[in-house]
């Protein structure tokens, strides 16, 4: 199994963290992983993205151009990265902030209102975790449990109190794309 993923959004939406959590979870499941962030001059107030690879095989190029999946958290990211999804690949769109549809018909597109779901869950800042829940549920590339372990590791003891709401957010994301 292999996922070559691009995650993109505004700086501050937690797209780099989403990628790190996937890489960390994949590593803990014994898979080969890499995480490569954009670190360009556009970061302040602009867009951020990262390439993440989770694979059973050693990772060759760490930069993703032909993505098996793309997650877009804002409109400019949809415009930029929709073309990078391979035919038959997966596109996850944050429909809370993106009010247009994808233009391609040769890929699988899911519209998930992650900001709205995060607000319902009780913490608007968990929108990225909602999206991660949807992605993990659709691909099965890592288990939700490992994502939570990765998140707990990232938070550390001082933010343990944030775990329950994030756990809810992850499950809500999965529910949003359940068949």
């Amino acid at each position: 199994m292999k996922q070559e993923l691009i995650i993109a959004g505004f700086g501050g939406q937690g797209v780099l963290l989403m990628g790190k959590l996937l890489a960390y979870a994949g590593m803990n499941e014994g898979k080969e992983v890499s995480w490569l962030p954009s670190y360009g001059p556009e970061m302040r107030g602009g867009t951020a993205n990262c390439s993440v690879i989770v694979s059973d095989e050693p990772v060759a190029a760490p930069i993703v151009q032909e993505a098996s999946a793309v997650i877009v958290m804002n409109r400019p990211s949809l415009d930029t990265f929709e073309k990078n999804v391979v035919p038959g690949g997966l596109l996850l769109v944050n429909s809370s902030l993106i009010d247009v549809k994808a233009t391609r018909d040769d890929i699988r597109v899911y519209y998930v209102p992650v900001n709205d779901i995060a607000a319902q869950v009780g913490n608007p800042r968990t929108a990225n975790i909602v999206m991660l829940g949807a992605f993990v549920a659709l691909t099965g590339i890592v288990t939700p449990e490992e994502v939570l372990t990765a998140l707990r590791h990232t938070f550390g003891p001082a933010k343990e109190h944030l775990m329950p709401v994030n756990e809810k957010a992850l499950a809500a994301g999965a529910a949003a794309v359940a068949p």
């Binding site: 890489a23 590593m27 992983v33 890499s34 995480w35 490569l36 670190y39 990772v59 760490p62």
Partner: peptide, 10 residues
């Protein structure tokens, strides 16, 4: 190169 500096791997 910048990628070696910025990327994460196990």
């Amino acid at each position: 190169d910048g990628m070696i500096g910025q990327m994460m791997e196990p």
